[in-house]
């Protein structure tokens, strides 16, 4: 079996060992918990399941989560592209620091981020006071949720776009210029067009991450049922009520959405880039 999988002789030995360990790890850490979840859900019957997920409070939380995540992804697509552009195209003092700071949301415990954001955007916080003058309520509203989500998922966009951007050679833009392209036309028809798959992937990953974000969001969201309650929080509430079945049902929806999105992104991206790479 393993001999069949080995398609090419490698100079480094150890395929059997490394392959087995990888499979074992994936089973233990990813597949086992997932099947636990599936078993919980399977045990509750279709009617119960449907009852939980179609409950108005659940539907409201789905709506809040998906809309905020979508908003956060759009913000990140724009800001992330800009950041990646600035980091790859310009040389300025502090560029390395900026590059390193992009990863901060990955490194920072999300609860810390949530607390900080909540303090900043509270009605009397540094930033929140200006927003409240303008009549925009950030804390305890979906705007706050969106900001928290975009904070934690920004690196996905930057880190997927950055390498592709570094790969684009200046001669392609020069070629566009000698063919009469204005800088704007060059940007949209040459650079952005080539970045689309990476940008799509990054934004999709950011969206998926935002769907499941918990720590950063709950501090700023206010968590009002039907209004600013996200799905992950609802799952947590059900767990605290020892209602494992409902918690699993809700969690399964997030899980299915994430899986569908991940596979979708993967297939769109590979379809877009396969021909470009010469498949």
């Amino acid at each position: 079996m393993i001999a069949l999988l080995r398609t090419r002789h490698s100079v480094l030995p150890g395929f059997t060992l490394s392959f087995s360990l990888s499979v074992l790890f994936i089973c233990l850490v990813i597949l086992l918990p997932l099947s636990g979840l599936a078993m919980h859900v399977a045990g509750m019957g279709w009617d119960n399941y449907w009852g939980v997920i179609s409950h108005p409070r659940s539907l409201a939380s789905f709506k809040v989560t998906v809309l905020s995540a979508a908003g956060a992804s759009v913000i990140n697509a724009v800001v992330g592209l800009l950041l990646a552009w600035v980091i790859t195209r310009y040389r300025f003092p502090g560029r390395r620091l900026m590059d390193a700071l992009v990863d901060l949301p990955f490194a920072l415990p999300t609860a810390v981020a949530g607390l900080t954001l909540a303090a900043l955007f509270a009605d009397n916080g540094w930033l929140g006071q200006w927003f409240s003058i303008a009549g925009v309520k950030v804390s305890y509203s979906w705007v706050g949720i969106m900001i928290a989500m975009s904070f934690t998922s920004l690196p996905f966009v930057v880190r997927t776009v950055q390498p592709v951007l570094e790969d684009l050679t200046p001669d392609v833009e020069e070629a566009a210029a000698t063919l009469g392209a204005s800088p704007t036309a060059s940007f949209f028809k040459v650079i952005l067009a080539q970045l689309t798959p990476a940008l799509l992937t990054g934004t999709g990953l950011a969206f998926t991450r935002s769907l499941g974000e918990y720590g950063a969001v709950i501090f700023i969201a206010g968590n009002l049922p039907y209004e600013t309650e996200i799905v992950s929080l609802l799952v947590n509430i059900r767990l605290e009520e020892y209602d494992f079945a409902s918690a699993s049902a809700l969690a399964s929806i997030i899980l299915i959405a994430s899986l569908v999105l991940l596979f979708g992104i993967q297939s769109i991206q590979s379809r877009l880039t396969r021909r470009w790479r010469g498949g």
Binding site: A175, A176, K189, Q194
Partner: peptide, 29 residues
Amino acid sequence: DARRRRVGFVFQQYALFRHLTVADNIAFG
């Protein structure tokens, strides 16, 4: 500017637009 000089330029490393087909590359200008 280069774009107003109306010269044809051929680069050593081709500098083709990899996201466009051969026909679209030629039709770009």
